[in-house]
Design a protein around this nucleic acid. Sequence first.
DNA 1: GTGGTCTAGACCACC
DNA 2: GTGGTCTAGACCACA
Lengths: 133, 133, 133, 133
Amino acid sequence: MFIELDLQSETPIYAQLVDQIVEGIASGALKPGDPLPSIRNLSEDLGINLHTVNKAYNLLKQEGFLQVHRKKGVIVQPDGMPGVTEEFEEKLRQQLRSLAAAAAVRGMSEEAFAQESKSVYRDMIMNRGGEQR
Amino acid sequence: MFIELDLQSETPIYAQLVDQIVEGIASGALKPGDPLPSIRNLSEDLGINLHTVNKAYNLLKQEGFLQVHRKKGVIVQPDGMPGVTEEFEEKLRQQLRSLAAAAAVRGMSEEAFAQESKSVYRDMIMNRGGEQR
Amino acid sequence: MFIELDLQSETPIYAQLVDQIVEGIASGALKPGDPLPSIRNLSEDLGINLHTVNKAYNLLKQEGFLQVHRKKGVIVQPDGMPGVTEEFEEKLRQQLRSLAAAAAVRGMSEEAFAQESKSVYRDMIMNRGGEQR
Amino acid sequence: MFIELDLQSETPIYAQLVDQIVEGIASGALKPGDPLPSIRNLSEDLGINLHTVNKAYNLLKQEGFLQVHRKKGVIVQPDGMPGVTEEFEEKLRQQLRSLAAAAAVRGMSEEAFAQESKSVYRDMIMNRGGEQR
DNA sequence: GTGGTCTAGACCACC
DNA sequence: GTGGTCTAGACCACA
């Protein structure tokens, strides 16, 4: 589980963290029940502030992707991930619309766009069950 | 071409403006050469600040989607839209990755995700050549 | 709308803030659409840190009691408060259970307990429509 | 007398313990003079730390709900439970106020709230004299 | 001027 | 040791 941050990026650090952890779960690098580094450890490793990590963890907890366990610390949700809610679909569609519009205007075809989505998804999932950590 | 702003949204107003104009172009509601409302007019209509509209127009100009003429005012790029640059593809992929990860974690299948992308694109394009304004 | 904090209390400051704002809404002292003091103003007035107020506001936003409006700042949810969700009922019952148990053990009767609940609710609502601010 | 802990809950384990023991007394599952498991036994059964159980027992002793004997070990207060003190009433009212406010804002009526309180109390008491352990 | 983000450093409750 | 809370002070994007 490697995390790479771009401190120059305009997307906030905590959001990058959230993204990468979610991708870690999606790719299978992080499995349900797996422990995550403690806030302090991770913040030190990444050279960022503890509150920034805390914010990311909290967001993921709210979304139901992580649990804060009294004994094990922070772990990946072991009791089943949240499903595809109405709310999520709405947000997904809205973001896709924005991307699709930009793609369409630049001349990318419907097939190309769908293909791109498909391959991105596939690349992410690819090595499920593969790397353990 | 109707523009709807959500003043409570987390996405800044200027970004919503950019999105909706791009979608307008993608859908065919706005065609190359079509005039856009003046900064002053649009800002008044929407009840927002001049600077906000200005920022949106400037971004779109930079991306090559709009032209700003002294005489004709702001018009939709008539000389061919920018194509699919390497830079754009990279940005697209990165955003799709984030969406795909969230979708995958929530149990949405590759097909469902690709299908969603496809249908969003299609809905947007649907009435090309249709409504003029 | 007066807010009183007990800095010695073991309930965190941000939680006291949340409570009092919710009580303000319940009592009618705060009406839908009403603006709340800016984070900086309130934190200064109360002599606490800006982040503490921010946390309270954020929690209330998440719960749907407040909105962060791009132009008006923070306001009381104007589009209808969230209803009685399954989740809320569960939490309510759990907390009532704890209170009821302590009351029962100390010899407070069912009627007395229900009566207490009733009168507390009533006192809170009492001057709805009354004080404006 | 079964105790169930939720290690993910926000309420500390010792507090959950306190709650459940009080509920046990209220429901009649634990009667005055009844013995409670030794600290060591209970902590092992629940798979938690000695200190945690100890803290819970101590709090209950301070409140007058338990007695700790050198010989008999820990037993439920046989000499009459503490009554409804001024202090308790104040705490009760304060907590009810917080709950009532949240309920009111979400549109729960005074009757519904009082009814909920009543039924929670009743469910707890229901099988008094019933199960022994 | 607003909220959002980030840092640095501190104390505390819990386990 | 863990996460949770609070403070102080800073910069930035947005409007």
